[in-house]
Amino acid sequence: MFRYRITALVLPVMLLAFLPTLAASQWHMPLGDGLAFPFLTVLVVLICALRYPGLLPSPLVFCSGLACDLFTRSPLGYWTLVMLITLALARFAETFHEHHGRLVRAVSTVLLPAFITLIAWILASLYELSWQPVRTTIEGMLMALLLLIVPVLLLMGLETLLITKKQNDPSRTFRRSRY
């Protein structure tokens, strides 16, 4: 139980601290170079907020955003604001999902990344006081969506590993309710 809790707490911290560091490096992505990794961090925030509610406190997201801003040399507060808006959106979406059917839930989940892209683009344009290239922003998000498979697989693997470790673990309730 203790080990489970520790791992569950360490997981998002590790992901949120690790990804901004990766975002700083030159990866020479075919699309959206420079935006793919910050957007990937945003998407991980979204997924963690939807899948593990309560494990992602806003100060943690704030710190992750600041790290992302610093390492990618973006204006301080830009990715922080995008991530906090994403967290707020995820919390709203969760409440929204409780009262709607599967189809509405699926559609709203698909629309969330598009909405986040729009917010990121508007914020960038407001900061620069001129329209920023929409294409670059969209390409960055698309690349991030492609890369998302890696952290998702990692999370799924970890979940499976932890759940099969202890049969009396509260995560069984989690599994029943989520899968």
């Binding site: 806003s58 600041l66 301080l76 507060g77 604001l81 906090l84 808006i85 707020a88 919390r91």
Partner: peptide, 24 residues
């Protein structure tokens, strides 16, 4: 989660991020 305190904290942090953005 999403209770009053959590929402206030989130709003406060977003405001702080906005202040950073303006200062930048």
């Amino acid at each position: 989660k999403g209770s009053g305190l959590s929402s206030t904290l989130l709003f406060g942090l977003a405001l702080l991020a906005l202040v950073f953005l303006v200062l930048d």
